[in-house]
C-alpha cells in the first residue's frame, strides 16, 4: 500500500485544490456579489464580501426586488413554494413508491407484471418528451397555478419503486413466515416490519428526491403563470430579464444564494444518505 503512494501527493493536492476552487468559486462570487452595492459589482471588485448583505437579503426576502427595472415578488414566498414543492414531491414519491413496490413484491395477482411494466416505462417518459400534452392534461384538470399541479404529476417514480423492490427482495422469507405465524397480516407486516427496515432507504431517497423537487425547472415553468406561484429557481431567471449590465446583480445573486442554500444544507447534513441514495438509485 505505502509503496504505491511513496511520494508526497503534491500533485494530488494541487489537482484537488484546483477542483475545490473550481467548485466553490462560482458560489463564493455569488455570495460576495449579494453583499456588495451595485457600483462595486460594476467595478468588478468581487473577491471579498461587502457590508450591504443584511439589507439586500432583507429587501428581497420580505419586500421583493422593486427597482426601476423589475418588480419581483418577495423571495420568502418563492422559497415557500419551492419548499412545498420539494417536500411534497419527495414525500409523495416515497409514499406511493413504497406501497406499490410492496404490492408488486409481496403479492401475486392478475396484472402484476403489467403494473410493474407500466411503472417501469415512466423511466423513458420524462416531461421533456411530452411537454404540450402534459400541459394540456394539467390545464384540463384545472391544476394550473396550484400546488397540486406543481407536485402531483411528478410523484410517480419508477426509480424509487425499483429501489424499494430491490430492497424488499432481500427481506428473508422466514421473516415473513415468522410474522404470519405471529399473526401479522399484510398491512401489519408492512407497518411493523417493512417500513422500519426501510428507514435508511427512505432517508437516502429523501435527499435525492428533495433535491430533484427543489431543482425542477421546466415543470414549474409550464404549470405556473402567476408570479406568486413561482419557485425560487424560476424566480431568479425572471429577475435576470435581459441579463445585461442593467440587471441588479446583487439582488439576483442574493436570491441565487438563497436558492442554493436549502438543498446544499440537506446534502451536507445527510451526506451519508445522499451518497447511498445516489449510488442506489442508479442500480
Amino acid at each position: 500500500m505505502h509503496s504505491l503512494h511513496d511520494r508526497t501527493p503534491w500533485l494530488a493536492l494541487i489537482v484537488i485544490g484546483a477542483g475545490i476552487v473550481l467548485t466553490l468559486f462560482p458560489v463564493w462570487i455569488a455570495f460576495t456579489a449579494s453583499t456588495l452595492p451595485p457600483q462595486a459589482i460594476a467595478r468588478g471588485d468581487l473577491l471579498l464580501p461587502g457590508a450591504e448583505g443584511a439589507a439586500t437579503y432583507r429587501t428581497i426576502l420580505f419586500e421583493g426586488a422593486r427597482t426601476s427595472r423589475m418588480a419581483a415578488p418577495p423571495v420568502s414566498g418563492l422559497l415557500w413554494n419551492s419548499l412545498i414543492m420539494a417536500l411534497v414531491i419527495a414525500a409523495g414519491k416515497i409514499a406511493i413508491s413504497v406501497i406499490s413496490a410492496y404490492a408488486v413484491v409481496f403479492f401475486s395477482f392478475p396484472g402484476r407484471m403489467l403494473a410493474f411494466w407500466t411503472i417501469f416505462i415512466t423511466l423513458m417518459l420524462p416531461v421533456e418528451v411530452r411537454i404540450v400534452p402534459t400541459y394540456q392534461v394539467v390545464a384540463g384538470l384545472g391544476m394550473l397555478n396550484t400546488y397540486a399541479g406543481l407536485t402531483v404529476p411528478l410523484i410517480a417514480s419508477a426509480t424509487a419503486t425499483l429501489l424499494f423492490r430491490q430492497f424488499f427482495l432481500t427481506i428473508p422469507d422466514e421473516l415473513v413466515e415468522a410474522a404470519k405465524v405471529d399473526g401479522a397480516g399484510p398491512m401489519r407486516f408492512f407497518l411493523d416490519t417493512v417500513l422500519p427496515l426501510s428507514r435508511t432507504n427512505i432517508a437516502a431517497l429523501f435527499v435525492i428526491l428533495f433535491i430533484y423537487g427543489w431543482n425542477q425547472y421546466l415543470w414549474p415553468l409550464l404549470i405556473t403563470t402567476r408570479a406568486d406561484m413561482d419557485t425560487i429557481v424560476i424566480g431568479i431567471t425572471k429577475m435576470i430579464g435581459a441579463g445585461d449590465a442593467l440587471t441588479d446583480w446583487n439582488l439576483v445573486m442574493a436570491t441565487t444564494v438563497l436558492a442554493i442554500l436549502p438543498p446544499a444544507l440537506v446534502v451536507l447534513a445527510m451526506q451519508r444518505q445522499f451518497v447511498k441514495g445516489l449510488v442506489d438509485t442508479e442500480k
Binding site: I96, S100, Y102, F109, V129, R130, V137, A156
Partner: peptide
C-alpha cells in the same frame, strides 16, 4: 413467500398507477 389478498395489492398500486396513467402514459 407472499401474502394472499384479493384487493389489497390493487389498492396499494392505485396511486402510483393513477398518476402514471393520467400524467405519463396518456400524455405520451
Amino acid at each position: 413467500v407472499i401474502f394472499r389478498n384479493r384487493w389489497l395489492p390493487y389498492l396499494l398500486l392505485a396511486p402510483q398507477l393513477g398518476v402514471t396513467l393520467v400524467f405519463f402514459i396518456w400524455p405520451s
